[in-house]
C-alpha cells in the first residue's frame, strides 16, 4: 500500500523478498545495506534467532531518488523462509506494493521453492491480492553453485505463466533482459504472461541491485 505524504513530499512503498528458507533473502538486503550510501538508507533491523535464521522479518528503508519533487522511499522486508513461520510470514505481506521471489537454484531445493511459491500465492489470495497483477519478479539465486538447476527447468516449475484475459494486454511483450524471450506470449491460441526473472549470486552481490531496480521501477510505474 503505497503512501503519498504531501506534507513531507514523500512516496513510501513496501517491497517484500519472499522465498524458501536459506535461499538468500536476508543476503540480498545485507548486500544493499553494505553498498548503499548511509545518507540514503536507514538502519537495518533483523528479527532473527540466535543462529541468524529470520524469525519475523528483516527491514531496510532505502531512498531511491526524487521524482516530481517527491522523495521515493522504499521499505524492504524479508519474510522468514521456514515453513513453520507462516503466521508471521503472512503478516509481512500486508500492504505490499511489490514482491521479489528469491529462489534457491540448487536442484535439491526445487521442492522447497515450489512449496514456497504456492504458499506465496495462497497468502496473497487470503488478503485478496492478485499476484499476477502486482509488481512481481523472480530472482534465481546461487547461480554459481555446481548443483544449480538449469534456468529453463526453474522457469518451468516456478514461472510457468498465467492466462492473460484482459484483451488490452494480449500482445507480445518482449523480455528486455532476455533476448528472444517474451513476458507475454501466445502459446497454442492462449495468451500467457510470465513474471520477469533474473539470475543472481547474492552473496557476491551479483544481480542484487538489478533485482531491486527492476521491481521498484515496476512499482513506481503502477503509480504513473
Amino acid at each position: 500500500m503505497s503512501m503519498i505524504n504531501y506534507a513531507s513530499r514523500e512516496i513510501n512503498c513496501k517491497l517484500v523478498y519472499y522465498g524458501p528458507g536459506l535461499g538468500g533473502k536476508t543476503t540480498n538486503l545485507e548486500h544493499i545495506y553494505g553498498k548503499v550510501s548511509p545518507n540514503t538508507r536507514g538502519k537495518m533491523i533483523s528479527l532473527a534467532t540466535e543462529t541468524e535464521r529470520t524469525l519475523f522479518f528483516d527491514f531496510l528503508p532505502v531512498d531511491l531518488g526524487t521524482i516530481r519533487g517527491f522523495k521515493t522511499r522504499f521499505h524492504l522486508y524479508t519474510v522468514p523462509g521456514q515453513v513453520y513461520y507462516n503466521a508471521s510470514r503472512k503478516l509481512i505481506l500486508k500492504g505490499v506494493d511489490g514482491i521479489v521471489f528469491v529462489a534457491d537454484s540448487q536442484i535439491e531445493r526445487m521442492e522447497a521453492n515450489v512449496e514456497s511459491m504456492q504458499n506465496l500465492y495462497d497468502n496473497m489470495s487470503e488478503y485478496g491480492y492478485d499476484l499476477t497483477r502486482i509488481p512481481f519478479a523472480i530472482q534465481y539465486n546461487k547461480r554459481d553453485l555446481p548443483n544449480a538447476a538449469p534456468v529453463k527447468d526453474l522457469q518451468a516449475s516456478l514461472n510457468p505463466g498465467w492466462p492473460v484475459e484482459d484483451a488490452g494486454q494480449q500482445k507480445v511483450v518482449p523480455d528486455p533482459a532476455h533476448p528472444g524471450e517474451n513476458l507475454v506470449d501466445r502459446v497454442s491460441n492462449e495468451w500467457i504472461g510470465h513474471a520477469p526473472y533474473l539470475e543472481a549470486v547474492a552473496v557476491r552481490g551479483d544481480g542484487v541491485f538489478d533485482t531491486l531496480k527492476l521491481v521498484s521501477k515496476m512499482v513506481l510505474k503502477t503509480l504513473s
Partner: peptide, 15 residues
C-alpha cells in the same frame, strides 16, 4: 483487488 490500495494525505489533513 490487484494489490493493496494506495492512500495519500494533504497538508491540511496533516495540520
Amino acid at each position: 483487488m490487484a494489490g493493496a490500495a494506495s492512500w495519500s494525505f494533504s497538508e491540511n489533513d496533516f495540520k
